[in-house]
Amino acid sequence: MAIKVHGSRVSTATMRVTAALTEKGLQFELAPVNMAEGHHKQQPFLSLNPFGQVPAFEDGDLVLFESRAINKYISEAYAGVGVPLLSKDPKAMATELVWMEVEAHKYDPIAAKLTFELCIKPFLKLTTDDAVVEEQEGALGKVLDVYEARLEKSPFLGGASFSLADLNHLPTLGYLMGTRAKAVFDSRPRVSAWCETILARPAWQAVFGLKSQAA
């Protein structure tokens, strides 16, 4: 049975999963979920993700939700195809996993708030809260100071090679690079170079280029 991703092309979490699948060169079906009409909060979607959030993921009889867990499954189950997204070496993988945790718990809560204020609100014709943006930009800067020091030691967060530690950042990075928040990244030379490198990956360009075809 084919891999199926239930979600929206504009959803950062959906893009996180489709980016991993695209890096792996895997064929998949993107089943649109109309979030504007609340279909993610209704059956049959709730049978796939009881929390009513996209994406949901099917690979044969396996059903998963939570984008980062899905990506780890993709990386392990399809380790032999496409771009390696997790190291086979336990110590190298441990470092990658640390930075995956950093993305999920240190970076993403801030980046998600900035994405909402600077990208989602304007799209919905809502007023951006400049005070929130300023506060979150300050918080982001502190996290990126740690990234700058890390990237002095290796070209990617997890080490010498691109991995999920980098890929999981791409959806919010893709949005924020078109906003005033780009300056927070650009003011740190190694972070700026890292952003440029990972955002230029063909798989990501293909995924982000489809967001205009939102369901």
Rank of each mutant, 00 (worst) to 15 (best):
F162T: 01
E101Q: 15
M177R: 06
G138E: 09
Y73D: 08
V5T: 15
S187K: 03
A139N: 09
I70K: 03
A215Y: 07
V63Q: 12
E23R: 01
K106L: 06
E148S: 05
D186R: 03
M35R: 11
V10P: 01
L140N: 04
M15P: 04
Y175N: 00
S161L: 06
W194N: 08
G52V: 12
A36Q: 15
W204L: 05
V83Y: 12
K91G: 08
A200T: 04
H40A: 01
S75R: 03
V17T: 10
L144H: 13
Y107A: 08
P171S: 04
A69V: 14
V102L: 13
K121H: 05
T179G: 00
L114T: 10
M35P: 05
W99H: 07
A92Y: 06
L144C: 09
L173H: 14
I3W: 06
K4V: 11
Q42S: 03
F116C: 09
I74Y: 01
A36I: 15
L64M: 11
T22Y: 01
T18K: 07
S163L: 02
L176A: 05
G174V: 00
L173Q: 05
R9N: 15
T12W: 02
Y73P: 14
S161R: 09
V133I: 08
L140R: 04
F65S: 12
L26D: 08
H40P: 03
A20K: 02
T95C: 10
P122L: 04
A193F: 01
P189A: 10
V83A: 15
L199N: 00
N34G: 08
G60R: 01
L199W: 04
L199I: 00
S47Q: 08
D130Y: 08
R201S: 02
K211E: 13
A183T: 05
S67R: 03
D59I: 09
V83T: 15
T172H: 02
D108F: 04
E152Q: 06
L30T: 00
S163D: 01
H39G: 04
D166Y: 11
L62Q: 01
A77D: 09
L210E: 14
E101A: 15
R201F: 14
